[in-house]
């Protein structure tokens, strides 16, 4: 028995996808046998469907990167990228995971609070990326205070952020300071220094006080072509952000880190 309803576009799609019921399949085959033009269109589309599958097959066949393992994701304590940048929100999310996965979840939340600390570093990185995206493309007013007032800029931002900042010299990396601005970061302020090279490429150094953690290792993060290296040192979060490759950005981040190290403040100047 064949199904006698007229053949529709949806039947042809389901034919291509192999999703027709047997009765309907016979009807469609009969239709195509009588309609050479439709049959040749369907044949081409079937071929293209297969070509697309073949073309993309390699990706599904790749071994999955370790960073996508569930155990890794949970242990690294990263919070979802689009959540509000507040350590409290991050904590709540990871706590909810702990609840969701039950008692055994405590095991991976309990490691010295590691997820929460890393979440704090991640939050700074993501805020920095947001600031980068907001201001780096800005033509008219990329900065609030231009580099010709560097001393004032650094002093002002240091006072507001509550940490002795420097505007690192990145000429060795091809970048010069164009200025900076003050940004809101949750309940507190953050500082943004912007640099530019001769090609017009810009990058930023973001800094703010870190209540959650005093020191972390370098972390790398990349979102849609914007990359960031972040670290926390002496209670201050630093994030170097740019539309650069990982290695190039790392060179800059290391230069910034070293200059802050060299500037290592005697203890009595540690707070302003």
């Amino acid at each position: 028995m064949t199904d006698e309803r007229p053949i529709g576009e949806d039947d042809l799609q389901a034919y291509l996808d192999g999703r027709l019921a047997p009765g309907r399949l016979r009807s469609v085959e009969a239709y195509l046998a009588d309609s050479p033009a439709a049959a040749s269109r369907v044949a081409v589309e079937a071929e293209q469907r297969q070509a697309l599958r073949d073309r993309l097959a390699f990706k599904a066949a790749e071994p999955i990167p370790a960073r996508l393992r569930v155990a890794h994701l949970v242990e690294a304590g990263r919070r979802p990228a689009r959540f509000r940048p507040a350590a409290a929100a991050a904590a709540a999310i990871w706590l909810s995971i702990g609840l969701a996965v039950g008692a055994a979840g405590g095991a991976f939340l309990a490691k010295d609070g590691l997820p929460l600390r890393q979440a704090a570093a991640d939050t700074a990185a993501r805020d920095a990326i947001t600031a980068y995206r907001t201001y780096v493309g800005e033509r008219l007013h990329p900065v609030e205070v231009a580099a010709d007032q560097e001393a004032h800029l650094v002093q002002w931002l240091s006072r507001r952020v509550g940490h002795p900042l420097v505007a690192p010299n990145l000429t060795a990396q091809g970048y010069r300071l164009i200025g900076g601005r003050l940004l809101p970061a949750g309940a507190e302020p953050a500082a943004l220094f912007m640099y530019q090279n001769d090609g017009g490429q810009r990058l930023t150094l973001y800094a703010r006080s870190s209540a959650a953690e005093k020191e972390t290792a370098f972390r790398f993060e990349s979102q849609n072509g914007v990359s960031a290296f972040s670290w926390i040192d002496e209670g201050c979060s630093y994030v170097v952000t740019g539309s650069l490759g990982r290695d190039e950005l790392l060179t800059v981040a290391q230069a910034v880190y070293r200059q802050y190290e060299d500037k290592a403040k005697p203890p009595e100047r540690g707070t302003l």
Partner: peptide
């Protein structure tokens, strides 16, 4: 297939998995 960039695509997958884990319940 959407992004055509290995790193960016895996970033998207990572965000997806993180969100799925955080909303598992």
């Amino acid at each position: 297939a959407l992004l055509r960039d290995d790193e960016t695509a895996d970033d998207l997958v990572q965000d997806t998995l993180e969100r799925a884990i955080s909303r598992w319940h």
